[in-house]
Design a protein around this nucleic acid. Structure first.
Lengths: 138, 138
DNA sequence: AAATTAATGCAATTCCATTGCATTGCTTTA
DNA sequence: TAAAGCAATGCAATGGAATTGCATTAATTT
């Protein structure tokens, strides 16, 4: 495992325990967002609750973000932008491929500005696009 | 109950049973999207399963749409655009107010076009904005 | 070394959506 | 009109997953 992994935790003020290193390492290897169950399978026989709480910590410290892709099971992915404990900036689009069932972050695809009705104030936005990804197109 | 309510069901090829009229009537009265539990409370002592299946039928016939607002419990609202059994066109933005916890359709707020990466094809989009609604701003 | 705090693991809860199945009601047809 | 078939309903059970409680273990501080 890369030594930089530990540094990534320290940078975010996260105590680098063995479990947390494993989870972060697994996340670093992904090219799509994965679910708690995926992580559980990938780290067997690690305990589900611990992973759950690890992800919660990561999210609170601005290391990962939680993606609601509409499938009902939350997905987790590393923050690509500079996020911290106070604020998340993952205003990019997420893409759910109906063919391979994977969820991708599209960091270069920002959510466009939109004009809300009068007196509506936005603090957060979540845009999920469903369709077919590049690898699944035939 | 308005007689037009029954016609709305017939127009969508939905057999207008008593239960379905009640559910549709309740939906017509809302100015925000509501959950299955909300409807259940509003129609006590009607059975949850029946309401669930009623909403499923409505959705399949293009009368209502299901909104995933990220709270974990799906919300239901009447389709404002012309939807039918084959296709839904509810490409408007949904707004979740973190103050009153209500979910609104913003039919005049369309999801802007966006350019996906090469070889990604979109079939559906869901944009949820979180923030404070007009009634909750102080 | 003792005491406090942080992290972990197991078990139990809880919350809903969803399904199975039996019953009831409606409609068609002989 | 009676029988048969299909549609709708209601109750009970299932299932999946997030979440919480609590006891144990590990790490840190005094």
């Amino acid at each position: 495992m890369n030594a930089g992994t530990e540094q990534k935790l320290i940078n975010k003020n996260i105590n680098p325990t063995a479990m947390r290193l494993l989870v972060l390492d697994l996340l670093l290897k992904q090219n799509s967002a994965i679910s708690l169950s995926d992580i559980e399978k990938g780290l067997e026989p690690a305990d589900r609750t611990t992973i759950y709480r690890t992800l919660k910590t990561f999210e609170e410290k601005g290391l990962t973000h939680i993606i609601d892709d509409g499938t009902g099971s939350p997905k987790y992915a590393l923050c690509l932008e500079e996020c911290d404990a106070n604020e998340h900036h993952d205003l990019h689009v997420h893409f759910y491929c109906t063919s391979c069932k994977e969820t991708f972050c599209l960091p270069n695809c920002k959510i466009p500005d939109l004009s809300l009705p009068n007196d509506f104030t936005a603090t957060e936005m979540n845009l999920v696009v469903k369709g077919v990804c590049d690898r699944c197109k035939n």
